[in-house]
Design a binder for these strands. Structure first.
Length: 256
DNA sequence: ATGACGGCCTGCGGCCGA
C-alpha cells in the first residue's frame, strides 16, 4: 500500500502534473493540500480520471483533497475542535485504515491570533489521534504540518530564528502529538538524512538545497509496524512550474 | 544591504505562503 502527500500550491495550476504523476506512480491514495480553489473549480481532468476524488475546497486559500483508487468506505470533512472557517482537514477510510489529510496553519501571519490558530489545530489533531487510539483504529495522519521538528529538519539559514515553523511552542505541540505513541514515518527510516520536502521558489533555494522538512506522516502503532519505505520525489520539484513542495510517499507491507 | 517567486483576487498592488 502506498500513500502520498503533496502540497500542490494551487491544484488548478497543477492539474496536468498531478494526472501524470498519478499515472506514473499509482499510489493507493494521494493527499493534496493547498488546492486554492472551490469544489466546483477542482480540475475536471482529475474528477474524470481513474481516482475517486474527495474534495474540501475553499476560495483562494487552503483546500484539501484525497484521491483514492478504491471508493472510500467513509469520509469526514473538518476537524472537531478546530473552529475556523478553513478547509484544512479531511479523512477517508480505505479498508480498515483511516487516512487523515491535513494542512496545518503556517502561523507566521495574523499576529498572535494567527499563531494561536496553529496551536489550536495541533490541540484538535492530538484529540483526534487520541480518540482513534482509544478506539483501536489504524491511521495515518499526513500532510503539510508546517513544522520543522528539530534543527536537523531545515537547512542552516533557511528560516528566521523566530519563525513559527521552529518556535518552541510549535515544537512542543508536535511532541505532545508524538508522545501519544505515534511514529514520524520519514525520520524513523532516515535518521541521518535531512529529507527536505519543501524548497522556496526564491534565491536558488532548490539548487542550493536550502530546504525544509515540513510534510510529514504520523502513524498509529499498527501502521508503524507495517511501514516499509518513505521517499521524497525531488525530481518532481525540479520540473518547470512545479509546486514548491515535493510529493512524499509512504509504503506499507500488507497486514499479516 | 537588498531582492528574489508565485499563487490568489468582483485584481492591476497587496496579501499570503514557509
Amino acid at each position: 500500500m502506498k500513500i502520498t502527500s503533496w502540497n500542490v500550491n494551487s491544484v488548478r495550476q497543477r492539474g496536468t502534473a498531478v494526472t501524470e504523476w498519478l499515472a506514473a506512480h499509482q499510489p493507493d491514495a494521494l493527499c493534496l493540500q493547498e488546492l486554492k480553489c472551490q469544489d466546483e473549480q477542482f480540475p475536471a481532468i482529475l474528477k474524470e480520471g481513474d481516482y475517486h476524488c474527495t474534495v474540501m475546497g475553499q476560495k483562494a486559500y487552503n483546500g484539501v483533497a484525497i484521491l483514492t483508487r478504491q471508493k472510500p468506505e467513509a469520509t469526514s470533512l473538518g476537524l472537531d475542535g478546530f473552529d475556523y472557517e478553513e478547509a484544512r482537514y479531511l479523512e477517508v477510510v480505505i479498508g480498515d485504515i483511516c487516512i487523515g489529510n491535513l494542512y496545518l496553519p503556517n502561523g507566521n501571519s495574523g499576529g498572535p491570533a494567527g499563531f494561536q490558530k496553529k496551536l489550536d489545530f495541533f490541540t484538535a489533531l492530538t484529540q483526534r489521534a487520541h480518540q482513534k487510539l482509544i478506539a483501536g483504529q489504524a491511521f495515518i495522519f499526513l500532510g503539510d504540518y508546517n513544522i520543522c521538528p528539530t534543527d536537523f529538519d531545515f537547512a542552516p539559514g533557511a528560516l528566521d530564528p523566530h519563525d513559527a515553523l521552529i518556535r518552541p511552542e510549535s515544537r512542543a505541540a508536535w511532541r505532545r502529538l508524538l508522545h501519544l505513541g505515534l511514529t514520524d514515518a520519514m525520520r524513523v527510516l532516515h535518521p541521518h538524512h535531512p529529507c527536505y520536502t519543501y524548497w522556496d521558489y526564491q534565491a536558488g533555494a532548490l539548487p542550493r538545497n536550502r530546504g525544509l522538512r515540513i510534510d510529514h506522516a504520523l502513524l498509529s502503532p499498527f501502521m508503524a509496524d507495517r511501514l516499509q519505505a518513505a521517499t521524497v520525489d525531488r525530481a518532481e520539484r525540479e520540473k518547470d512550474r512545479a509546486s514548491d513542495h515535493a510529493p512524499v510517499t509512504f509504503s506499507f507491507l500488507p497486514a499479516r
